[in-house]
């Protein structure tokens, strides 16, 4: 008679919290004692995905390390909006050095911690480096790759919003094809960003065969927390790439930030998976498959695709990219699949 497992919750595993779950099964963000590592009063835009993603990730890392955590931060929105003199929003030991060196600074921190611990002068403190896509996939890429190759004990978190938003929305190597930015205007025969070869840093991280690589979005908090927690349980170089929609750069409503991340995942535009030592170990399957148009249409950076005569061919090319992700990472919706 009982066809369904009884452990069904009104809201499943999708909400931040659930009164029906045992406390240890609840998300870090549901906890009244969460660290709020990135505190109120920061100057991020309304509905900032990066501010949200950073608190999600760092709170989870704090939780996983018993609050023994130091963060190194690349220059960028996250740094600028969190630490303008005389106030900082960070509640953890945090350092900002430069745009392109967060991974290396973190290596230095990890080295110092290791020596201090060896000498009996310090405890087991862990290190997170974080930056935006510009600081990660472009200017900080050398340091990132070096950190990976040495397998330094650092978790690097990239908050990917697909462009240099802090400087006024310019193109980065993470800017998706056809997207309008201040340096890829919707003009000429191929408006918006080029259809390049792409630079998907999670795949490059996997090529380093580091112990752990994962992608996540701000739309799947539990998945994100699971991955950060898992990463903090591993020694060596780890990389988590989090999609964080940017209302300013994407031209979306401030209240749609999480929705946009969800659409990116559900359309296959952004594959959500985890990999160990270069091999994909699990994926977050698509739950309600959608055409990419659903994702593109609400964003002003793609408005030129939906003018008087829709850019059908361009949309089809983007759909093909999503389809490829779905094939490659096996993201097809599955029965009962979370």
């Amino acid at each position: 008679m009982s066809l369904q497992p009884v452990k069904f919750y009104q809201t499943g595993t999708f909400t931040v919290g659930n009164r029906l779950l045992a406390p240890e099964e609840r998300s870090v963000q549901a906890n009244m004692q969460r660290t709020n590592s990135l505190n109120s009063g920061h100057r991020a835009c309304q509905g900032c995905g990066e501010a949200l993603g950073a608190r999600y990730a760092i709170d989870a890392a704090m939780n996983a390390t018993n609050r023994q955590l130091i963060a190194a931060n690349a220059t960028g929105c996250l740094e600028v909006f969190s630490t303008p003199y005389p106030e900082t929003s960070w509640q953890i030991p945090w350092i900002h050095s430069l745009f392109g060196n967060a991974a290396a600074v973190a290596t230095g921190i990890a080295a110092a911690i290791k020596v201090k611990k060896q000498k009996g002068q310090g405890g087991d403190v862990r290190v997170v480096a974080q930056g935006g896509d510009g600081g990660t996939t472009d200017i900080g890429f050398g340091c990132l790759s070096g950190m990976f190759e040495r397998n330094d004990d650092v978790l690097y978190i990239c908050y990917d919003n697909g462009g240099y938003m802090n400087t006024g929305v310019q193109r980065s190597s993470a800017t998706p094809p056809a997207a309008r930015t201040a340096t890829t205007m919707p003009l000429g025969p191929e408006p918006g960003n080029v259809f390049g070869q792409g630079k998907f840093v999670p795949a490059i991280a996997m090529a380093h065969e580091i112990p752990y690589v994962a992608t996540a979005t701000v739309a799947d908090l539990r998945d994100l927390e699971y991955k950060v927690t898992k990463a903090m349980g591993i020694r060596g170089a780890r990389y988590i790439h989090i999609l964080v929609p940017c209302p300013l750069g994407w031209g979306t409503a401030s209240h749609d930030t999480i929705r946009m991340a969800r659409l990116a995942k559900e359309t296959g535009i952004f594959p959500v998976f985890e990999a160990e030592y270069g091999e994909v170990k699990s994926v977050l399957a698509i739950r309600r498959p959608l055409p990419v148009e659903e994702y593109l249409r609400p964003q002003k950076r793609y408005a030129h695709l939906f003018g008087k005569s829709p850019a059908v061919a361009t949309i089809a090319r983007i759909q093909a990219l999503a389809d490829k992700n779905i094939r490659k990472y096996r993201l097809q919706a599955r029965q009962g699949g979370h």
Binding site: Q10, V16, R19, S27, N36, S40, A44, L52
Partner: peptide
């Protein structure tokens, strides 16, 4: 129990913590 838990609590807070979690400004 399963059936009861299908209720979506339409229009009334059931303390799912979503607002608490999703606010970028705490």
């Amino acid at each position: 129990l399963f059936e009861a838990r299908r209720c979506m609590s339409c229009g009334n807070c059931f303390e799912c913590d979503n607002c608490y979690g999703v606010c970028p400004d705490n």
